[in-house]
């Protein structure tokens, strides 16, 4: 194992441990997906020659390219979709807050003199 792959492995496992420790319980079931993905990733970091063997089998140059291309494609799409979703959510929040504000709008009323 090279120094670089050891560092990468430590990063992957560290991140996983940190996320599990801090997020568990609160909307945390997605951590199962994260753990599965990170463990597969960890395997390929630890045994790069296996990954490259599989890649050659299907006609791709290096093992990491398996991951690199899909990840970049996914990342671009995901960030666009999440920005779109955020705007939609903001619009819905605005509508709800505004509807309440309009319904409860009141004119300032004349006051009785307080000192009596």
């Amino acid at each position: 194992m090279t120094l670089a792959s050891a560092a990468l492995l430590a990063l992957v496992l560290g991140l996983l441990a940190y996320d599990v420790a801090t997020i568990r319980g609160k909307r945390g079931r997605y951590l199962l997906v994260e753990a599965a993905a990170f463990l597969v990733g960890g395997f390929f970091i630890a045994f790069p020659e296996r990954a490259t063997a599989i890649a050659h089998l299907v006609g791709i140059g290096r093992g990491v390219d398996f991951f690199l291309y899909p990840i970049v494609i996914w990342l671009v799409r995901e960030s666009l979709l999440s920005r779109r979703r955020r705007l939609e959510d903001a619009e819905r929040l605005t509508q709800a807050v505004r509807a309440l504000a309009v319904a409860e709008a009141r004119a300032v009323e004349a006051r009785e003199p307080r000192d009596r």
Partner: peptide, 23 residues
């Protein structure tokens, strides 16, 4: 607070609405 705003006069009136969160 509407009660802290100037009361209406024959030519002046204030209508107050509030957003529950800052938008």
């Amino acid at each position: 607070a509407p009660d802290a705003l100037p009361p209406p006069t024959p030519s002046f009136r204030i209508v107050v609405a509030r957003h529950g969160v800052n938008l």
